[in-house]
Design a protein around this nucleic acid. Structure first.
Length: 576
DNA sequence: GCCGTTTTCGGCCCGACTGTTTTCAGTCG
């Protein structure tokens, strides 16, 4: 059955590829869109498509008779003939060319058909040889842009972590707000939706005369390149390679514009479809009647949602993952907030690889108003940390004798899950800790089956309360390990083991999609900062963002519980 | 190819910017 990659994701990838191939080969553009929509909906579908009947498949939004048939074909044969046939018509390199900024399906296909250009490398050679001169629709400017686009796509190091993006966005917002012409300014886009990584920054501002704001943006010292410059929209690139889009609208359009620029694209498409069904038209300038073009609402997000029959939807939910239906029915969840967080169960001191002392960490946690704090330095099997039994016991005594005021101090450790799923100490020693986090710190490349068994064995250990940063991914540097996550989460739910939501911006682990899947298995979550310094407690909002994106409430998160309830949860595990 | 609180057929989200096409196509978000 489903391994690391669910059949749903394989099907979604094939449907997406089919949509891209359809766009390349021309024909009905609406067909391509239907396949894209079906791909998203299959990827987000809770039930494995291999277990669904034809009738059940057709109940997935966007899946009709034809796509259901293709999914069934995939389930039975592992492939879809229609996809294979289109693949045979268009070299993979032509599809890859559309990843170059500014080069879409039409141009890619034109270059392939007229000049036989079938890869990014071939395009570069053709540009060098001047072979594009005289091509219809491609002048000297376009050729130069393509050359630039190739360089950009090669230099692309991926997406940016949320801490870097947040800092950049706040600096720009502050600079624009300082202008007297600026009536309002904020960031929107994926940063407002609190995605786990950020591709570019969207800034929205309101002003009667946008020109001073546009000028200010392009003149900022961090700006190295102006990509587009208009009266309503300006795009620039910063020294770090981050693209920043600034849109300026009249203040009266603020609400509609903020919805539009917050996205996601899929969420906005759904809203516009709802508007159309009501004889209305939604754009960034407001909600209008179609026939008379009369403005109905635009000033606030709430007013626009309300006129569409919806409750206001928190930005972290705007991914077309069921939030629109919930808003229509009044069943949106009361999301976890930063204020709900009572404690932190994963922190380090300079006894291992932290940089702050125990005293400093305790003082910082108290200053943040935490009700409880667990110190969880690394266990002995991570040799570079030089941990010993004696050091650990000495730290425990130190913690037991400390006065932390109203805050309760817990003594814990971050255990290492070895390749077989065992941890650093025996039951007797483990029993002395108040709380144990257990994490994978080595052997990241085990097979999915081995890794799955490893995690399940760790969950079945009565002294392991929390699985730390489960996928071990490091955003932009190291991929997630492979495992059958549904099997792991089933074990976590069954044994009362919490899964961590690690708030460290390079990790954000579990990621939101996996949190959603884990919740279906009845799993509870430990939202921790994994602080290695007093300043890292400030990473909490990034973790809260992931929890919100996964629809979590305070009841789902054990670090949002008061200490007595948390202690019951920890105790229940040992008593199983 | 999908879909229906107008519809089982005729629609399908909307607008900005660029470059080159003298009126708009392509790309992007």
């Amino acid at each position: 059955m489903p391994g690391a990659v669910r059949a749903n994701e394989s099907v979604a990838a094939l449907l997406t590829e089919y949509a891209e191939l359809l766009a390349l080969t021309g024909g009905d553009p609406f067909r391509a869109r239907v396949y894209e929509k079906a791909a998203r909906s299959v990827a987000g579908h809770a039930t494995d498509v291999t277990r669904l009947s034809s009738a059940e498949l057709r109940k997935i939004p966007g899946v009709g008779a034809s796509i259901a048939e293709k999914i069934e074909e995939f389930v039975h044969t592992g492939a879809i003939r229609a996809v294979d046939e289109l693949r045979a018509k268009v070299p993979a390199g032509v599809l890859a060319m559309t990843a170059i900024p500014g080069l879409g399906p039409k141009t890619a296909m034109l270059l392939y058909e007229k000049l036989g250009i079938d890869s990014v490398d071939a395009l570069e050679s053709a540009l060098d040889a001047g072979a594009l001169a005289g091509m219809k629709g491609i002048g000297p400017k376009t050729a130069a842009n393509l050359r630039h686009g190739i360089a950009l796509s090669r230099a692309q190091t991926g997406r940016f972590t949320v801490d870097v993006a947040t800092r950049t966005a706040l600096d720009i917002v502050e600079a624009l707000r300082a202008l007297p012409e600026c009536e309002r300014c904020t960031y929107a886009g994926s940063l407002r939706r609190k995605r786990d990584s950020i591709g570019d920054i969207d800034i929205l501002a309101a002003a009667q005369d946008p020109r001073p704001l546009m000028r200010r943006l392009v003149e900022l010292p961090i700006v190295t390149e102006v990509i587009v410059a208009g009266d309503k929209k300006t795009s620039v690139r910063t020294v770090s390679g981050l693209q920043v889009d600034l849109r300026v609208v009249p203040l009266a359009s603020w609400g509609a514009a903020l919805i539009y620029f917050t996205g996601s694209k899929e969420h906005n498409v759904r809203l516009r479809e709802m508007a159309v069904r009501r004889g209305l038209k939604l754009s960034e300038y407001g909600l209008f009647t179609v026939d008379t073009d009369e403005l109905i609402v635009s000033e606030t997000e709430e007013a626009v949602y309300e006129r569409l029959g919806l409750a206001w939807i928190p930005p972290t939910l705007r991914e077309d993952r069921g939030e629109i239906e919930a808003a229509a029915q009044g069943t949106l969840p009361i999301l976890l907030t930063e204020q709900d967080i009572q404690g932190d169960l994963h922190t380090h001191t300079n006894l291992t690889d932290g940089v702050s002392t125990l005293d400093e960490m305790v003082a910082a946690a108290r200053a943040r108003g935490l009700a409880y704090l667990a110190i969880t330095d690394h266990a002995k099997n991570l040799p570079m940390q030089r941990m010993t039994d004696a050091k650990m016991l000495r730290q425990r005594e130190q913690i037991r004798s400390m006065d932390a005021g109203d805050m309760v101090l817990l003594h814990g450790t971050e255990l290492n899950i070895d390749p077989e799923g065992d941890v650093d100490w025996d039951a007797e020693f483990l029993a002395g800790f108040d709380v144990c986090v257990a994490s994978v710190h080595s052997h990241f490349t085990q097979s999915s089956d081995d890794m799955t068994r490893r995690f399940i064995r760790a969950c079945e250990n009565p002294y392991v309360h929390i699985i730390g940063h489960p996928t071990t991914r490091q955003i932009g540097r190291r991929p997630a390990v492979e495992a059958d996550w549904d099997a792991v989460f089933e074990a976590a739910g069954r044994t009362g083991t919490a899964m961590e939501i690690n708030a460290y911006p390079d990790r954000l682990d579990l990621p939101d999609e996996l949190i959603l899947r884990a919740k279906r298995h009845g799993v509870k979550f430990a939202l921790d900062t994994d602080s290695h310094s007093t300043v890292h407690f400030g990473h909490l909002p990034f973790g809260v963002g992931q929890a919100q994106r996964a629809w979590l409430t305070a009841d789902d998160v054990i670090t949002a519980w008061p200490l007595p309830r948390l202690r019951e949860f920890l105790q229940a595990k040992a008593n199983r």
